[in-house]
Nucleic acid binder design. Structure first.
Lengths: 301, 301
DNA sequence: TAAAAATACTCCATAGGTATTTTAT
DNA sequence: ATAAAATACCTATGGAGTATTTTTA
């Protein structure tokens, strides 16, 4: 069966006549009759009742007519959808994000803004740490990922900076330093640190430790947490202090105090990582949305 | 676009390769590539990204793949549905019935039994008097009609008797005759009759009047009602007495008394009328259902 | 350099056309 | 008698095949 058979059948059913339908289709009557007969043979039942002069739809034909109209409409819709997909209006977007990104206003507004502009793109969100996300991005399992540099990158990865936030100190509310509005890194030389670190050795924690050493002390690492939010939880349980991105303040809870840190570098960066080798209009639109949100862009390999 | 394009596209997308897909389709690789290219040109966007060695679906291709699979599945379903429609399993049935038929157990059980056996046949019920229904049946507006003979029939109409019920007398409960269990027609000679009659002059009422005359009296017709049920309503309002099919007892209400009538002829007949010129499997199944329900059949022109 | 897609060309199956007959109103 | 479908036969478009070249991993 071919769509031609359906088109011819619909025309014949609507014209209630082979001759008239053939005229409408700009073909001769005999080939139309042949095509309809071939269709009937394939289906296994007559679709028209021949009454010598004139024809009427059989019961099977009436049912098949609704199916045929539906199928032909879907074929047209399929064409339009494919075009819209090519224009990035329709499709899917698999987006990875690090746990701490969900606390950042820039990130959440990016996703909601994109979804508002492209409501027919289905977004699949996937949480993971930056290293894993970058690995998945390289493998093509993700279209884009919101991660915290630095990270070990295998292959070509483009990073567009979404947000650069200062670091803050989180203290248990019983801590002696809560009296101070603003702390310097040196003020923390004798504190017990709760860090969140990656197996790779990269990441914000490593940068913080390096900065401490540059300032002449080796921080005592009392606890290791897998994620930033779990580090904050350990602080609220009195296990030590932590240095976290400012956006973690959203995680406000009793027994927890955030204090400014007088420190220019390092900053907590959130970036939108993409794989230039695997570009698509959908991803380009997401990048454009991100650019519009931050007002600036950066390219890092 | 033809279904061939969709079949080739799906095979290619699933094989992720023109060469492999061509093998699966039992055609050579070049014509497959040509068909896919023609499809892409018609849609207006590439469906595959050619990477010299190997191909991958584009975003548009991914969206089009789901559409193509859906369409191909619907084509198969359409074939099956048409066959099932030819077998009377699927379709529509437009069934007329006289108002009084809805009180008859044989009729209601026929419809429910048919619907149970053929749940995918959509039944449209249409009420009307017997004359109108027969006219509509002849015009092909109805597939079948449950009517009360006799009626004026234009054209060839087959009637299968569904139910032959005795007639009963309906009296207001205040009536002097309610004391009697069983009445003869002669007992009613001085009563005021409420009749339900048709413009055509045919019908049960006409038969009853004829039977009265045969027994030597002319019934005084006090009221005319358009339907049997409205005649019964008039009786309950004290406007007279009526002779109705036994199944009208279902219309029990205060102030209304039903009494047996000692009368062999006429009987109140309900029949399933069909148009032999416009047969179909669906109608045949309905007739078979009716035959099973009554255990007998009759053919009347 | 090897595997896969693209190109160039040929062939034939079949969609479609023409002429005519059959059928039912 | 006539209008419409069916039959018979012919034509030619385009789908499919064969041979070869191009591309890239």
């Amino acid at each position: 069966m071919e769509l031609r058979h359906l088109r011819y059948f619909v025309a014949t059913a609507q014209a209630q006549s082979f001759t008239k339908a053939a005229q409408a289709l700009h073909i001769a009557q005999p080939p139309l009759g042949q095509q309809i007969r071939a269709l009937e043979e394939e289906i296994g039942t007559p679709l028209f009742l021949r009454q010598g002069r004139g024809i009427v739809l059989s019961d099977a034909g009436a049912v098949f007519l609704t199916s045929a109209l539906d199928i032909l409409a879907r074929v047209e819709a399929a064409k339009k959808d494919a075009l819209r997909a090519a224009g990035g209006e329709l499709g899917t977007l698999t987006l990875g994000f690090t746990e701490s990104a969900s606390f950042n206003e820039v990130v959440t507004s990016l996703i909601s803004r994109y979804q508002q502009q492209y409501p027919e793109v289905g977004i699949t969100l996937l949480e993971g740490n930056s290293e894993t996300l970058i690995k998945r991005l390289s493998r093509g399992e993700l279209d884009a990922a919101i991660v915290r540099p630095p990270f070990a990158s295998t292959g070509d990865i483009a990073l567009q900076v979404l947000s650069e936030e200062p670091l803050m100190v989180v203290l248990p509310s019983s801590h002696r330093l809560v009296r101070r509005k603003r702390l310097r890194l040196e003020d923390l030389r004798d504190e017990r640190f709760v860090l969140y670190s990656r197996k790779s050795g990269y990441g914000l924690s490593a940068d913080i430790v390096a900065e401490c050493r540059r300032r002449g002390f080796n921080p005592s690492i009392h606890q290791q947490a897998p994620q930033v939010s779990s580090a904050v939880n350990l602080v609220s349980a009195g296990m030590g202090i932590a240095i976290v991105p400012a956006s973690m303040q959203r995680m406000q809870r009793p027994g927890l105090v955030f204090r400014e840190l007088a420190l220019e570098q390092p900053k907590a960066i959130l970036g939108l990582a993409t794989c230039p080798a695997r570009q698509s209009v959908v991803i380009e639109h997401l990048l454009a949305c991100a650019q519009l949100g931050t007002g600036e862009a950066e390219q890092v390999s």
